[in-house]
Design a protein around this nucleic acid. Structure first.
Lengths: 254, 254
DNA sequence: GTAATTACCG
DNA sequence: CGGTAATTAC
């Protein structure tokens, strides 16, 4: 069983990457962030033709989340208690639940958008505490817009005031993790610099290693036990008109 | 010998149509209007690879003319006496000259752009009187933005105040024709509604016959005598992402 | 309807 | 760098 998370940075602009990738890799669950499209314009048929059901919730132009799946969900939950409908979506299956999140970026630490980000992380933690059965199988996938540790950014000193590495964001994210989640990529690569994001604006960022680990697949302990491997696929970043994020893949013996 | 005129409505957006069309049809002279690109960004190499030399004069974003040719010209004249460099280009060959023009559209008959259009037509007539040898071989190709007669529009009554059919524009264009040119498409199809343009915004315009004849190949009498046929190719309008204009082809025994 | 423009954003 | 939006033009 394979679960994937990928910030697509506009699903309509990334179909030439996403659809062939799905056909080749056949993940059971494929979480997308920053779909940047309202629900009536989501390219649902492209997923159907590839053999996937797709559930989505988005607004015009920014944010937006979606989950494509090979399996029929028992329940679809949009947002968290009706709020943040363009940032959170959850599918519940027979023995597994998956939550997909796009955490706010925050602009700058002086901005009130950063306060909103910190607040979002607290509310998201509270929401997860409500809906996650920590004795069951639940995955939380998404673009967290937080690099949790020094190893997760290329220049910890230089970036200490960046909204995705600032101590307040990291602490808020840590509060969420400490509900009991296992960060699967870090479990399988405990000492390695493994990046899921290379800024478009940084020239030759990949060759220079100027990346960030801001995307994650978090698992309840029971699900983490079943995880066989977790890794990043660099290939889509080397294609024409790539996203600035990379797909993150977790494989399970389930 | 084949001469073609085609308003491409952005050469960069139309390469997928133009280059295969050139490879298939091998015109000697291929005139383009509305290339919508400045000279440093003109996709010259695409034409070279198809075996064509190409001469172009354009500005960023609108207007712009170009001529692709299989033959080496003896002289290249940009604009008319240095003016209107984004609307007029002339190539002189050993025994043939070709002028390519993109006449202003004019927006609305109340607009001062319409006065500019009428003035352009007068100045262009004067320019042609200077440079054309009416005892030689000269073709004037282009988007005239004028439908000269009732037969050249789908609804003459409804369109009498349209800038491309208004009597003042038609009279100004007639002044140009009456220098001594032969309108080749009309010569070979004297009674037929033959349209070179179907507005993108008119639904199913082709099926409904809602077109315009605004593009033309005009010939000096001596050249017109050598013309074997003149016709429109509808195929490029039925491809993906077409121009709203159609290629107009004249064939000569020369 | 299609393809340019500029301005804004991460 | 590469998305979105609003605007302009035909």
């Amino acid at each position: 069983m394979k679960i994937v998370t990928f910030n697509v940075n506009s699903i309509r602009a990334r179909l030439h990457i996403v659809i062939p990738w799905l056909k080749e890799n056949r993940p059971d669950i494929f979480c997308m962030q920053e779909t940047k499209v309202d629900d009536r314009n989501f390219p649902e048929s492209e997923f159907s033709r590839a053999g996937y059901q797709v559930y989505f919730s988005g607004i015009k132009g920014r944010n937006g989340v979606a989950i494509a799946t090979l399996h029929e969900p028992e329940e679809i939950i949009i947002g968290m208690n009706g709020e943040e409908r363009d940032r959170v979506i959850t599918l519940k299956f027979e023995k597994l639940a998956v939550t997909n999140v796009y955490v706010p970026q925050g602009q700058s630490i002086e901005s009130e958008k950063y306060q909103y980000k910190l607040d979002f992380l607290r509310r998201f933690r509270d929401y997860l505490r409500e809906i996650v059965d920590f004795n069951g199988y639940h995955a939380v996938c998404g673009d967290m817009n937080v690099a949790p540790d020094e190893i997760d950014v290329h220049s910890p000193q230089r970036l200490r005031n960046h909204v995705c590495f600032h101590i307040d964001a990291r602490n808020a994210y840590r509060e969420l993790l400490s509900l009991g989640f296992v960060d699967l990529l870090r479990k399988f690569h405990p000492e390695e610099r493994v990046y899921t994001f290379y800024d478009y604006r940084v020239r030759n960022a990949i060759e220079k290693g100027l990346g960030w680990r801001v995307d994650a697949i978090l698992a309840t302990p029971k699900l983490a036990e079943k995880c066989r491997d977790c890794y990043i696929d660099i290939k889509p970043r080397l294609m024409e008109r790539p996203s600035d994020h990379l797909p993150l893949i977790a494989e399970f013996d389930l």
